[in-house]
Design a protein around this nucleic acid. Structure first.
Lengths: 210, 210
DNA sequence: CACTATACGGAACCTCGGTTCCGTTTGTGT
DNA sequence: ACACAAACGGAACCGAGGTTCCGTATAGTG
């Protein structure tokens, strides 16, 4: 079956025999889907994706048998990007700076992609799987431990918290789409501040007050 | 046409002539809807609401011409509750404590009601209207200013931030439904910590939050 | 107890959007 | 240039779920 008889072209063998335009269209669909999902969230119409890609719905479906499959492909992509960013962050000599840079990057991605944050609480398994595939939590875990070892990060933070926080951040931000004055950066700042170890360790509780 | 002739019973005149069981059913529907929406989010099936309420779909529709109307009623209710809580918080002699109690209350509501947080970013106008109706932002604004005057709250926080933060909090929390180990309280703590004035900026630390 | 307006239940209806199908077009090897 | 499999486009199909309709049951009244 694979590399069937007649099929020639051979080329890179590894590259499944596939017509050039097909490969091109796949790319176009993926790109259009990325934008469309980012704009409209989980319930974009396939037809809109097709239109944006300049192809027919049939074509979308040949490349991705199901809307869910398309979403999955997108998710895998995004998570791969996050994992990549997390790895880069590990190289930062300063643990806290690495961690917060990673948070910033993630927040930005989340804020720009409406479907991503929606998927995170409407398709937990899908995201879990995607994250698993790229070892995201392991890497983030390291990031966290390094920062905690430096005493730069609350001790009770766990790798699993990060997706939730980032996701909440994304959500919080979207609210502000209308009002350009409000940016996700402010929220990120608040959360990062909240993640520093409590001033007097444990909870900030002082006897006196003003 | 209106208040047609025959119609009697009068009673409180203000209370539209309405059969007793109708009133009872309306209540049942509303309660069932509250639970159903909270569990399944914006896309519960009306039929499920009906089943939970122990009535037929037709009945649901007599009381609420549209799913959207039902949602609106629920939203109004929730926002009224929040406004109420905010007013109570204003009575707290300690500004920060009042503010953080309000945040806690809101987070709890958000965490328990899946539809509410979904509505906040999928039906902005609806929520905006509901909040408007109960002057929510005004009250929260006061809450904030009081806390800021005490130097207990970051100076750059605005009333409009609260819904976003709370909403994000709700979202962040839902993620953890499966793993009971993770509670919204941790996230609330992080955000509250992040909302204190930046460490450097003088002013005595204020009292408890709990 | 009889009567009627009000409510009820739930089957039928309608719309929307994902998915399939098939006649047509196009890339690729000869 | 030719032939054919691969790929395409988009109309048609189908199930899901919101909404409507109408025959039946009931609260309220004389």
């Amino acid at each position: 079956m694979t590399t069937s008889a007649t099929a020639a072209s051979a080329s890179t063998d590894g590259a499944r025999t596939q017509r050039a335009d097909a490969r091109r269209n796949r790319r176009k669909v993926l790109d259009a889907a990325r934008k469309a999902f980012a704009e409209d969230g989980l319930d974009v119409r396939i037809e809109k994706v097709a239109r944006k890609a300049g192809v027919g719905v049939g074509t979308v479906y040949r490349h991705f048998p199901t809307k869910e499959d398309l979403l999955q492909a997108l998710a895998d992509d995004r998570f791969a990007g996050l994992a990549e960013a997390a790895r880069r962050a590990l190289d930062d000599p300063d643990a806290w700076s690495g961690f917060s840079e990673f948070m910033r990057y993630s927040a930005e991605v989340m804020a720009e992609d409406r479907a991503l944050s929606e998927a995170m609480d409407q398709r937990p398994e899908m995201c879990g799987q995607a994250a698993e595939d790229v070892r995201l939590l392991e890497i983030v875990g390291e990031l966290i431990q390094r920062a905690q070892a430096d005493g730069a990060l609350r001790a009770d933070v766990v790798a699993e918290d990060v997706p939730s926080l980032i996701c909440g951040l994304g959500r919080a931000t979207r609210e502000s789409e209308g009002r350009p004055s409000m940016s996700w950066e402010r929220y990120l700042a608040i959360i990062l501040a909240g993640l520093r170890p409590a001033a007097g360790s444990s909870l900030p509780r002082s006897p006196a007050d003003s």
